[in-house]
Computed example of a mutant assay.
Amino acid sequence: MRVEIWSDIACPWCYVGKARFEKALAAFPHRDAVEVVHRSFELDPDRAKDDVQSVLSMLTAKYGMSEAQVRAGEDDLGAQAAAEGLEYRTRDRDHGSTFDMHRLLHLAREHGRQGALLDALYRANFAEEATVFNDDERLVALATGAGLAEDAVRAVLADPAAHADAVRADEREAAELGARGVPFFVIDQKYGVSGAQSAEVFDQVLTRAWGERTPLTLIRGGAGEDAETCGPDGCAVPGH
């Protein structure tokens, strides 16, 4: 069973929602049969790479919130993150373009390191002091720390077209599915879950999707018998 998760590194609810989903998945009896794929979604796709500002100024300008409202919201997010065992800096974080990070996540998927890199990017953005925006050397350090080869990482960062089509394809698919925000989870190509739901909700959806998987129907011959096959012990001999 496949679970696809559209998210953005700049999205605090994606950070929290990932932890809640993983809590549900860890307790799911069939977790070893679940493939998790992370898909790209930019909250700010038109932002230039060098356009970096504080989260405080971004939120006050974008939503017309007061500084006090922004700080209160950040404090609430910090408390919810802490409840999931996550570190969260409620002050002095930056906001910027995440396009290069998504391109690196597609590189990481090719090498089986997507989950490790996503965790590193979330931790760097929400828990650590150094910015992850418009800083290629910071991204190189995070990606190599997640197990990617440095030359491959630098090659992607040096080529704006590398994995760009994959990022845009993910974003088009999200729009086609009706996702207007993230996190957005698609379970077994059947159920969509929007937002950082509780672990209990994710458990219910995983259980329901697994229970509705179509069982294998074995078709036998006219006499109700299997035809000849080959197996570990050899092949059936006609007439014997």
Score class of each variant (00 low, 15 high):
Arg220Val: 13
Asp46Val: 00
Val237Ile: 13
Asp51Ala: 15
Cys230Ser: 05
Leu104Val: 04
Gly147Ser: 14
Pro215Leu: 07
Arg39Phe: 11
Asn125Val: 15
Gly96Met: 08
Gly17Tyr: 12
Val36Ile: 09
Met58Val: 01
Val193Pro: 02
Ser7Asp: 00
Leu59Asp: 01
His30Gln: 15
Phe133Ile: 11
Asp94Trp: 01
Val36Cys: 05
Asp100Asn: 07
Glu129Leu: 10
Ala24Ser: 05
Arg93Asp: 14
Asp170Tyr: 11
Thr214Trp: 08
Val201Cys: 06
Phe28Cys: 11
Ala223Thr: 08
Thr207Gln: 11
Glu67Ala: 03
Val140Thr: 03
Tyr191Arg: 12
Ala27Met: 05
Val3Trp: 13
Leu121Met: 12
Thr60Asn: 10
Cys11Met: 07
Ala79Gln: 02
Ala81Arg: 02
Glu137Leu: 06
Ser57Tyr: 00
Cys14Tyr: 13
Lys18Thr: 12
Asn125Gly: 14
Gly78Lys: 04
Gln189Cys: 09
Pro232Lys: 09
Glu228Val: 03
Ala10Thr: 08
Gln197Ala: 02
Ala116Thr: 10
Cys11Phe: 08
Phe99Tyr: 13
Ala68Cys: 08
Glu67Gly: 01
Arg154Lys: 11
Ala81His: 03
Val37Trp: 00
His102Met: 05
Ser40Lys: 05
Leu86Ser: 05
Asp170His: 12
Ala146Asn: 05
Val132Thr: 15
Ala82Tyr: 04
Gln197Val: 07
Ile5Gln: 08
Trp6His: 06
Val167Met: 04
Gly231Glu: 06
Thr98Ala: 01
Leu142Phe: 02
Val37Arg: 14
His102Ala: 06
Phe126His: 06
Ala82Glu: 04
Asn125Ile: 14
Gln197Trp: 02
Arg103Trp: 07
Leu107Asn: 07
Pro183Gly: 14
